[in-house]
Amino acid sequence: MIEINNLTKSFGANLVWENVSLTIDDGETLAVIGKSGSGKSVLMKHLNVLLYPDAGEVLIDGLNIFEIRYAKLRRLRQRFGVLFQGAALFDSITAYENVAFPLRFFSDFNEDEINERVMESLELVNLADIGTKTPAELSGGMRKRVGLARAIVMKPDYLLYDEPTSGLDPQTSDEINDLIISMADTLDITSIVITHDMHSVLRVADKVAFLDQQKLSWYGTVDEMRKSDHKALHSFIIASEYTI
């Protein structure tokens, strides 16, 4: 369980958001929505301590993650799988090696066990046959799926998706959405999805957090969102050209 209490962050003089408080239960999928520049990715980077807040705390199973030492923090980070916006695959090695990368450094597996794990992950994202290709040879959707395979290969407890469907055609976006759902179901994983794609939110999310006006403007379940008369949220949804 992740508890976010009164988190405040600013870059220099620019306040990103303040007093953000949320709770993410195990197994649920939270969608964090908001306009570009509303600080969705910044919030996500606090969860695995790529950034430190100005004030507030994040408790993971009761442990304040901003207070633990770097060596321990690195183990904590391995409990998070992250799918970055551009997939962030390492250009110089093949797709297969990208997925195998964390295993080679952080597991005692031999080559066969690594191969088994990698193939299992690639099958979960329906890409069992692209191993020898380099990231440059893959399409945007395939890159995201390889990135997802790499994110789950260490069997994390939490999965963070940063704009998983941005830059993809609607059909590929749907495939990714399906993958998010299947990950949550098959791996029994807690997911946090950063997105402004309302279609994606309605497909995958259990709860929704709306960042607006430098604060957590609205927070609730998808059903509550449908009924909500929150103005800013409503106009954000309308702007997404999506009717509820």
């Binding site: 980070r77 391995q78 998070f80 992250v82 962030a88 260490m154 963070l160």
Partner: peptide
Amino acid sequence: VSEQIDALESMGFN
């Protein structure tokens, strides 16, 4: 700029 350093960090690398 392509977040590969963030990716490394989030995998637990220094």
